[in-house]
Amino acid sequence: MDQIENSHDEFELISFCIGDQEFCLDIMAVREIRGWTQATPLPHSPSYVRGVINLRGAVLPILDLKTRLGLGVTEVSPRSVIIVVHIGGRLVGLLVDAVSEILATTKASIQPTPNVACDTVNRFVRGIIALEGRMVSWISLDHILPEQEAAEAA
């Protein structure tokens, strides 16, 4: 949340569905949104890594965000999309069920994540946005990729 200096400044988030929950990402991290393509599976990788696809000549890893958040495995449908995001210097594709809308919000309207005693929530949810009776969880991308050390040790 550090990059949002002024609490009155509006910033935009892109919201999407995974199962029956709504999540959102800072739109500045998103590079493009594209349809689902069959991915080439990677051996010896965590279950949420669906594989890699060809993004105009670059090899793009695809993470199943549903699995990453501990909500099961995404059943790929025609509405499934890949949100291509920047994480550090990397480009990563996130598989989600559907993209819903772009939300404009201010820092002031973001509520801290309620403590539900869940490790996954603590790691991946930065805050909650209440919106016309809906609740949207703001995803943090910092820990989305597999931990390098864990992979090294494997």
Binding site: T40, L42, P43, S45, N54, A58, L60, P61
Partner: peptide, 22 residues
């Protein structure tokens, strides 16, 4: 460059059908 080293895999390539092969 976008992911990390994968055990038993040296690198990837893109084949004629546009798909990634390891």
């Amino acid at each position: 460059s976008n992911f990390q080293r994968v055990e038993a895999i040296a690198a990837a390539t893109i084949l004629g059908d546009g798909r990634v092969a390891l």
